[in-house]
């Protein structure tokens, strides 16, 4: 009788990156083949529509509006996509009992969760990059059209000095496509990463995708509005004790998503302090680690 001692003795590392990567790749394939990327087409359509905004405003203002709307939409798509795709994954594996076959292979549950998270993050990253390129292309195009128009108009009757023309072009460029906008995309990515890990956490509890999606969106909205709404609400309720306590509890339990909206300022053309962005990275990492640990706590001895 042969003994399987050799295989049994194979080292079992606490975390096999290869396994994580296999699951992440699988997730990526799954999301691609589920045609989730089709939403990018919707975004492309939207960007084109935004680009053809015809507002009776100055070119600078029009560019800034186009930029705000397209980056705002990008941010929205990123977090929504992160929620929906994450929520479709784990509960679905559970419902379909695909999880049985995966976990009956030498796969640790932490590897499974990490793999799913990475898969979603890769997909969100790709989508954001594509959306960024789309927006970048569209904004640059509009910018060049405006500059050409303005140049033609300003040079026509020679009323403006070279410096005035240069100032005007600079004004338009300031509201056009600038490299710092990449950081705005990264901000959206960080936000999506945090909501993805929160969704993973929720889906370890939940039994259906729909439930996970609804609760995640709710948490996102609360986490987003909390800072803005609490002062409004406190004011409305004349600072009642109940509301005060509730505001505190929400602040502690729900991630502060509004903090991750710092892309707003970048899109408006503010200077990007890289040290702060670095801190936001750290905060995101903190959220990911803590929520993964909590998910693992639930998931570790979860029975299906």
């Amino acid at each position: 009788m042969s003994q399987p001692s050799a295989s049994l003795n194979r080292k079992a590392p606490l975390l096999s990156l290869r396994t994580v990567w296999t699951i992440a790749r699988g997730t990526l394939t799954q999301l691609i083949r589920m045609r989730t990327f089709y939403f990018l087409l919707a975004f492309a359509g939207l960007v084109v529509a935004i680009g053809n905004f015809n507002i009776p405003e100055t070119p600078a203002k029009e560019l800034s509006m186009i930029k705000k709307v397209s980056f705002g939409t990008m941010d929205l798509f990123a977090w929504l996509f992160a929620i929906v795709s994450t929520a479709l994954l784990i509960p679905r594996d559970l419902e379909d009992r695909t999880l049985y076959t995966i976990l009956s292979k030498p796969v640790r549950r932490v590897e499974y969760l990490l793999g799913k998270l990475f898969g979603v993050l890769i997909v969100v990253g790709i989508s954001l990059t594509v959306m960024y390129l789309l927006c970048g292309f569209m904004i640059s195009f509009r910018e060049s059209v405006y500059i050409a128009e303005e140049l033609a108009a300003m040079e026509k009757d020679g009323r403006y000095s070279n410096k005035e023309i240069r100032d005007q072009i600079a004004l338009i460029s300031k509201h056009g496509m600038r490299p710092e906008l990449g950081i705005a995309v990264i901000a959206s990515f960080l936000k999506a990463a945090v909501i993805a890990v929160v969704t993973i956490f929720l889906s370890t509890f939940a039994s259906s995708s729909l439930f996970t999606i609804i609760i995640s969106i709710l948490i996102f909205l609360i986490g987003h509005a909390h800072n803005m709404a609490s002062s409004f609400w406190l004011h409305q309720s004349d600072g009642s004790m109940f509301v005060q306590q509730l505001v505190k509890v929400v602040k502690i339990l729900i991630p502060d998503f509004q903090l991750f909206s710092f892309s707003e300022g970048i899109v408006l053309g503010e200077v990007v302090p890289y040290a702060l962005v670095g801190q936001m990275f750290l905060l995101t990492a903190g959220y990911i680690i803590v929520f993964l640990l909590l998910s693992l706590l639930v998931f570790a001895d979860k029975e299906f």
Partner: peptide, 13 residues
């Protein structure tokens, strides 16, 4: 519960 056991086990649910 030992993950090594799963190196040598196949499962058809």
């Amino acid at each position: 519960g030992d993950i090594r056991a799963r190196n040598v086990t196949g499962f058809l649910p």
